[in-house]
Design a protein around this nucleic acid. Sequence first.
DNA 1: GCCCATTATGTCGTATTACGATATTTCTCA
DNA 2: TGAGAAATATCGTAATACGACATAATGGGC
Lengths: 137, 137
Amino acid sequence: MSKDPAALDDADYAALADFRATIRIFLAFSEGEAAKAGLSPRQHQALLAIRGVPRGEATVGYLAQRLILRPHTVSELAKRLSALGLLAGEAPQGDRRKLVLHLTPKAENLLRALSAAHQQEIRRIKPLLSDLLDRFG
Amino acid sequence: MSKDPAALDDADYAALADFRATIRIFLAFSEGEAAKAGLSPRQHQALLAIRGVPRGEATVGYLAQRLILRPHTVSELAKRLSALGLLAGEAPQGDRRKLVLHLTPKAENLLRALSAAHQQEIRRIKPLLSDLLDRFG
DNA sequence: GCCCATTATGTCGTATTACGATATTTCTCA
DNA sequence: TGAGAAATATCGTAATACGACATAATGGGC
């Protein structure tokens, strides 16, 4: 019998494990930085997603797509962030069912420091990640 | 006053948000595949980490380092996986405090299918990730 | 050869958080 | 205008990682 061309060998598994571990390293770094700022990882990602898009476009539904969460989960996330004084929301002109979220100045400041640190970390792991990707043909 | 050279502009935030979103896409894919196999993401990563290392090297402590979790958390993770019939463990010759974990045939089979799917998905997002990394200078 | 600090793993209770089911408000358009 | 859809919100629940603590085994100094 001939070898299955799609069969994975030890090197394939090692590459997958290394890829996953590298992502985990980045996420653990991010977790730590966010925690220093008093944020959960999701809260941090939510703030970043809002900052990364033009003002007025960050609705609950948009965030749900962007974070790959259920809309009602984002609703709770936004409530917690609002309670922390990091988010404000208002209904846009056209559709009063929607809620457009925007960062408070406090959130802008938090995110500025967090993002600088993350940018550095991504630059640090960039060669690692590139090499890793090359192991996937 | 001159502009802070380290200041982040909208494009920097967008790159960070896109990078994070791409990781989230991969993790959501992985979550879904793992769930189809009846595994949590951590359980999947644990199996992969064990498979990715030579037999006999995957102790609880090693996994804790690799997954960036507390050892006692890995202990519980291993207990759940054992209850599912996916892991077996035994004390190695030298040090009977340690517990070496290895996959059962059932876990090998699950992981084979999962890993093939993940390899494909990584190949799919590889160009996206590469372009993204280039946005970080 | 024995003691004790250290290492490795395990147990228990708790807090966080994402989800399903369901509800409410607003919009759309026939 | 009324029915159904869309967008967001509420509530109870389940999963899981952690801290604090416990147990077991090791090994170096004397």
